[in-house]
Write a protein that binds this DNA or RNA. Structure first.
Length: 275
DNA sequence: TTCCAGGCTATGT
DNA sequence: ACATAGCATGGA
């Protein structure tokens, strides 16, 4: 994808494969704020970006240009991915609907915390809880950096509950202590199945949340999280119901190496049907 | 009031 | 290995 950078801005002129509302509202990320149509603030780790559409160009004003070139995955060609996936009317419709989706290179810790909170929850409250957790982090001018594990470790179960985490509060409390014991750098080197096994051993992480962490936190694009919306997609495609593990493996077989991208287009598309 | 939200844990078979 | 109750919380 073509883009140009200055010291603190990235300009994207070709917006065929970049639409900020698609990117942020397709369910992969809970750490942003909508200011207006096509005007969003994005928080990741200790970084901040404002993304705004001006004269049909996206202007990303940010704390670190290199960080956000990587974060928005600007060097990946989504034309190739879309072409590879577009083998039936259903997915082609989904891709056309969410043509501007990109899978973000998110901060792993935020993904783990965010998706533990996401279980049997709604996106609005997940985002509110994540923002409240962020406020335990270091203040950087107008925003907060996401708190480190050492800071997260000082948050009590009751405090997590007060932030709206509900019964997931103790999962967070427990998992934060487990995460203190691992070297994140080493986990990146593990293959997907070993990584999944470890993720499933964390409190509050089941098959679906593990797949989300693999896809959004580790960039393992051959994973296919199955939630309530993807269940509906599966029924649309295969005219039957199975358990979520089976649905996930069927969908990976169906879509192949770029299954994770398909998952995002399909989730965003299917969720738009009802309101 | 009941159902649902990007499900998971614990328990029972 | 598979099925299901119970779980916090707020909005529809």
């Amino acid at each position: 994808m073509k883009y140009t950078c200055t010291k603190d801005t990235i300009i994207i002129e070709d917006t065929k494969d970049f639409d900020i509302s698609h990117i942020l509202e397709c369910g992969q990320v809970f750490t942003y704020k909508k200011n207006a149509e096509n005007d969003y603030d994005v928080y990741s780790c200790d970084q901040f970006a404002n993304v705004k559409l001006l004269d049909n160009k996206y202007v990303i004003t940010c704390t670190d240009v290199n960080y956000f070139v990587n974060y928005f995955d600007l060097d990946t060609d989504y034309g190739i991915i879309k072409k590879n996936l577009g083998k039936s009317k259903y997915i082609v419709d989904a891709i056309n609907f969410g043509h501007g989706i990109r899978i973000l290179k998110q901060n792993l810790l935020e993904v783990i915390i965010g998706f533990i909170i996401s279980a049997n929850n709604n996106i609005k409250r997940i985002m509110t809880t994540m923002q409240k957790i962020r406020e335990y982090g270091e203040k950087r001018g107008g925003y907060y950096a996401f708190p480190s594990l050492d800071v997260l470790q000082n948050i009590t179960i009751d405090e997590f509950k007060d932030m709206g985490a509900g019964y997931r509060a103790e999962y967070l409390y427990d998992t934060i202590r487990r995460l203190k014991k691992v070297d994140f750098e080493k986990t990146y080197k593990q293959d997907t199945s070993a990584l999944k096994k470890w993720l499933l051993s964390l409190k509050g992480v089941g098959p679906k949340v593990a797949d989300c962490i693999l896809l959004f936190g580790y960039g393992r694009c051959d994973c296919f999280p199955v939630d309530t919306w993807i269940e509906k997609v599966y029924v649309d495609l295969f005219h039957k119901k199975e358990n979520r593990i089976k649905m996930s493996s069927d969908l990976i077989k169906y879509f192949g190496e770029y299954a994770g991208y398909a998952q995002q287009y399909l989730f965003f598309y299917r969720r738009s049907f009802v309101k």
